[in-house]
């Protein structure tokens, strides 16, 4: 790294700020979630529960996990799709003609690595193969984990509802075939696909001065992948 370090907080401000807002909004979800849950309990003629009981309920668990899984699916798909697909003029895209995984020279891999390249970029073999895909592998792995967690927690929450309404609980495989599971999944997926697609194409014609997610303000609309 050639950039001069300016202290832990400023060097990591983006990650730390989003981490802090994540915790605050998760707290907001917990408080509004228990209020909503209790409104339903009262409507069903059941006893309200405490915040502590809500935070240790699968109802809270599935509401958190169904949103996490869609975010990691979004990033996983975007990371892979942008290897192979371009959007001419988008700050989010490679230039047309650069589709694919590119050459070792372009990617500074193996004998083309720099002195300060990561060890696994230089080593070759399976290490470089894994490291070359590590971001997508982690995002894809987190999608599968969080989606599985949303299924397990959703199953328990669904059965809890069923029992509250004096209906039969379902087995785990039965839940995987239930509309509840797929409705939770699809309603989160559709919003991610819309947001990603719109970001890719809106960034062709619109700018945000100073943001690396945008092209430079004066960049031509037709120019692709030029970040500010």
């Amino acid at each position: 790294m050639s950039e001069k370090s300016r202290g832990f907080l400023r060097d990591n401000a983006l990650s730390l700020a989003f981490g802090a807002v994540f915790l605050a909004t998760l707290g907001g979800q917990a408080l509004s979630g228990v209020a909503d849950f209790n409104a339903q309990q009262v409507a069903d003629g059941l006893d309200p529960i405490s915040l502590g009981e809500y935070l240790t309920s699968s109802s809270f668990g599935v509401d958190v996990m169904e949103n996490w899984q869609s975010e990691y699916l979004q990033f996983f798909l975007y990371i892979f799709a942008t290897v192979w697909l371009v959007q001419r003029g988008s700050s989010e895209s490679k230039k047309p003609g650069e589709e694919g995984t590119e050459s070792d020279k372009e990617q500074r891999v193996g004998r083309f690595a720099d002195d300060d390249s990561p060890e696994w970029a230089r080593r070759g073999g399976w290490r470089t193969a894994v490291f070359s895909r590590s971001l997508g592998l982690l995002m894809g792995g987190l999608f599968l984990l969080t989606w599985a967690a949303s299924a397990v927690a959703g199953w328990a929450a669904y059965n809890s509802d069923q029992l509250g309404q004096l209906e039969d609980p379902v087995g785990f495989l039965g839940y995987l075939a239930a509309p509840d599971f797929w409705n939770r999944s699809f309603q989160n997926w559709q919003s991610e696909m819309l947001a990603v697609g719109s970001m890719a194409v809106f960034s062709v014609y619109l700018r945000q001065r100073g943001s690396p997610e945008s092209k430079l303000v004066g960049t031509a609309h037709a120019e692709t992948g030029q970040t500010g």
Partner: peptide, 30 residues
């Protein structure tokens, strides 16, 4: 690279703890 590695692992641990917690709640049938 002042501490970025620590933030990296903090994020990963928080995510995995969240996943494990949600799975545990589900398996316990809470």
């Amino acid at each position: 690279m002042n501490g970025a590695r620590a933030v990296f692992w903090l994020y990963l641990v928080v995510i995995l703890v969240g996943v494990a917690y949600a799975i545990a709640l589900g398996l316990m049938g809470r």
